[in-house]
């Protein structure tokens, strides 16, 4: 095995490498449906059981490398979909809440404003996207994100030969030294759009409701994805629910990820 060839050769070898969401947005503008999408997500915390299937599915789908013991201890693991837990109280009066946390895809994202090289931007559909080739790894966006949803790639992505077999051919691994983040599985959105175009129809809510890998795998059906601009979509209906809230709403970032939470059981 040659030890000299570069990561680019590796990236190039993956069929359909697609880290660049910008092309995608352009494609939508050329031939997309008349209404502009505004992708959003609703996570029902009353359903979520903290199983973390979403986080594993995300790693599998997006070729997120294994951190390993050393990087884990240094806090360098990458989770586009993470699980944050808040707890309070002392034994036996304890409360704990889990929050599955993808990128919030804010309508007014602080991360974009600070990028000195234009590596991060917002797509026409409202996805906060990241272009690895432009990123210089300054990590300003990482510190500016109030939700800590951006991850710096501390090492060259690598897998043992055998595990490279299961890599997703639709997603390119990101190189060492750049920022990576949740893209709402935009490669799946693009494929769904292509499919509906081929069938001569526009994308409907049922096509996308469980489209991202996290939403598809969620056993509790707690994650719903869809178009917030579509007045009839499930995600819109839930986002307008009285149970809905967003993280750190007071910052004015206008996240497009909504959480639902009721009080606990009442007689």
């Amino acid at each position: 095995m040659s030890r000299t060839s570069s990561r680019r050769a590796f990236l190039g070898a993956l069929v359909g490498a697609a880290g660049v969401a910008v092309e995608e947005a352009a494609a939508v503008e050329r031939s997309g449906p008349p209404r502009r999408h505004k992708w959003g997500m609703v996570i029902d915390l009353d359903r979520c059981t903290g199983c973390q299937a979403c986080a594993v599915a995300c790693r599998a789908e997006n070729n997120i490398p294994i951190a390993g013991a050393t990087n884990t201890e240094k806090g360098r693991s990458i989770f586009w979909m993470n699980l944050l837990a808040t707890s309070e109280g002392t034994y036996p009066d304890l409360r704990q809440q889990f929050f599955p946390t993808p990128c919030n895809h804010c309508e007014d994202p602080p991360c974009i404003k600070v990028c000195p090289v234009g590596a991060t931007s917002q797509s026409e559909d409202g996805i906060t996207q990241q272009i690895p080739d432009r990123c210089i790894g300054c990590r300003l966006c990482e510190v500016s994100c109030p939700y800590t949803r951006r991850y710096f790639n501390w090492s060259e992505p690598s897998w043992p030969v055998a595990w490279r077999e299961h890599l997703n051919p639709d997603v390119a691994p990101r190189p060492h030294g750049v920022i990576e983040k949740c893209l709402f599985c935009h490669h799946r959105i693009r494929a769904a759009k292509a499919r509906s175009r081929a069938e001569g129809r526009i994308l409907v809510d049922a096509d996308v409701r469980r489209l991202p890998a996290c939403a598809q795998t969620c056993p509790a059906e707690a994650i719903v994805f869809g178009d917030l601009n579509d007045p009839d979509s499930e995600v819109r209906r839930l986002a307008e629910s009285p149970r809905a809230f967003r993280l750190l709403e007071e910052l004015g970032t206008h996240p497009k990820v909504f959480y639902l939470r009721d009080a606990k059981w009442q007689e």
Partner: peptide
């Protein structure tokens, strides 16, 4: 097994990507 240390994450892929 050809890739000892795989699970501990210390093996780094450095070769060309063979198109299987």
């Amino acid at each position: 097994a050809v890739s000892a240390g795989a699970v501990t994450g210390c093996a780094r892929y450095q070769g060309a990507a063979p198109v299987s």
